[in-house]
Simulated assay, not measured.
Amino acid sequence: MTQFSPSGFDLTPPSADERRKLEATLTPEEAEVLLNHGTEAPFCGGLLDQKDDGLYCCRLCSLPLFRHQTKFESGTGWPSFWAPFDEAHVKAVRDTSYGMVRIETRCARCDSHQGHLFPDGPPPTQLRYCINSVSLEFVPMSVPLPDRLDRGDVLPAPATS
């Protein structure tokens, strides 16, 4: 059954065949983070200093996860956002690894690891989505959104606010 987010995106998980094809496009570093819940080193991610107008999409399945307007400099070494593109696009999962209790963030469509959520962000949400650069693909506003699942979906035009 097809599931749609409030913003109109298909949230139906990839089939086993679609998933294999998507995973085959990943670099070893991307696979380590997205599939094995790894973390890239701080202050070295390619999107840390990205400031252009656009959307940050899941690197695995291309679902829009964050807007450039919600990105902020947290000083942590990873891209940080105070709100998702659509709350239905980011899944929160309790993470007790490494002797800590944290909230892991995953793509709601493909379940790939994105990063973690912390309650120390700026207003208006006081949230900090601390995300790995390799988990994301930046799409400038002037470029059509990718459709890695190639389902023939008509993707909604990205909103600018």
Rank of each mutant, 00 (worst) to 15 (best):
L34W: 02
L34G: 02
L34S: 03
L35R: 15
N36E: 13
N36V: 03
N36S: 13
H37F: 09
H37Y: 04
G38N: 08
G38F: 05
G38Q: 08
G38R: 09
T39F: 04
T39C: 05
E40H: 06
E40M: 03
A41T: 03
A41P: 01
A41S: 09
A41D: 10
A41Q: 07
F43K: 12
F43A: 11
C44N: 10
C44R: 11
C44Q: 11
G45Q: 00
G45N: 02
L48F: 00
L48I: 00
D49Q: 10
D49C: 06
D49K: 14
Q50C: 11
K51D: 13
K51G: 14
D52T: 03
D53E: 15
D53V: 11
D53S: 14
G54P: 07
G54Q: 11
L55W: 06
L55Q: 13
Y56E: 11
Y56S: 07
C57G: 05
C57N: 06
C57W: 01
C57Y: 02
C57T: 08
C58T: 01
C58H: 07
R59V: 02
R59Y: 01
L60W: 01
C61V: 02
C61Y: 01
S62Q: 11
L63F: 06
L65E: 09
L65S: 05
F66N: 10
T70R: 15
K71D: 11
K71S: 14
F72M: 07
E73S: 13
E73L: 08
E73P: 02
S74L: 08
S74K: 09
S74P: 07
S74V: 07
S74M: 10
T76R: 12
T76S: 15
G77R: 09
G77N: 03
G77H: 04
G77F: 03
W78N: 00
W78L: 01
W78C: 00
P79L: 03
P79M: 04
S80G: 05
F81M: 12
W82D: 12
A83S: 13
A83N: 02
P84Y: 09
P84N: 14
P84L: 14
